[in-house]
């Protein structure tokens, strides 16, 4: 047994074990020794930590979704359905320089010329998926509608899902208001007076992908693909 206390013997064994090359009875014997001796366990763990860094080099392999579902069931994890506010805030990334520039310009202009009450609102909606997608939305009281302008790419489409615009209030206790759906052919949404009034307390616009039959939903059910702060404008 003394030979296993010699680092020149046990360290190569620990490395061979960590590599997986120690096989058969030699492996079983080494495992028994590890149970008895802390220094062997510690040395082996140290080499496992060092060698297993090789996993970092592996190219990723798509994991079937059933593995996660099985884990969720086995661990009885509650479905990680985030609250609306968490879903809304988590993917936001305010670092997109172009968005920052657009907003800075808009906000500066607004502060220089803002009568009361606002006659229009504008929002630059940024993709939550980091795809540098940007949509400008402008609501005008004179026209009682919101018009959209796509600045970069096409709006994300999914079969059976409709891009739906929501107005998010500054008051977090107020539920979001569904303003309508966006169509490829008609990039505007008509507003009624109640909708217009809601813009006074709006903090954000968000576009989510909703199922076709979810037009009565009072909260976004699907993925939020774009969002951005709403700014009041003068006439």
């Amino acid at each position: 047994m003394k030979r296993y206390k010699n680092p020149d013997i046990f360290e190569p064994l620990a490395m061979a074990y960590a590599l997986g090359i120690l096989q058969g009875r030699a492996r079983s014997r080494f495992e028994q020794l590890m149970q008895q001796h802390l220094y062997l366990r510690a040395t082996t763990q140290a080499y496992q930590q060092k060698l297993n860094g090789l996993v970092e080099l592996l190219p990723s392999h798509t994991v079937p979704t059933r593995v996660w579902h099985n884990l969720e069931q086995a661990l009885q994890l509650k479905p990680t359905k985030l609250s609306f506010w968490e879903r809304f805030q988590t993917p936001l990334n305010w670092a997109l320089p172009s968005l920052a520039a657009v907003l800075a310009a808009i906000v500066t202009a607004l502060f220089l010329n803002q009568p009361n009450p606002p006659q229009a609102y504008i929002a630059a909606l940024k993709s939550t998926q980091q795809q540098h997608q940007l949509v400008l939305a402008m609501a005008k009281h004179a026209e009682m509608k919101i018009s959209f302008e796509m600045l970069d790419q096409y709006l994300e489409q999914q079969e059976g899902m409709v891009p739906t615009l929501w107005c998010i209030s500054k008051n977090k206790h107020e539920p979001p208001m569904r303003l309508g759906t966006l169509e490829q052919t008609k990039q505007e949404i008509a507003l009624n007076q109640k909708m217009w009034n809601s813009l006074e307390t709006a903090s954000e616009f968000a576009i989510s992908l909703e199922p076709h039959n979810a037009n009565m939903a009072t909260q976004p059910q699907g993925k939020i693909i774009l969002s951005g702060a709403v700014h009041p404008m003068g006439q």
């Binding site: 592996l58 392999h61 996660w68 994890l77 509650k78």
Partner: peptide, 16 residues
């Protein structure tokens, strides 16, 4: 559990 899901999403492709 939320952290576990994120951990799984970020690490499982290489481990798989």
């Amino acid at each position: 559990g939320v952290a576990f899901k994120q951990l799984y999403q970020q690490s499982s492709p290489k481990l798989y």
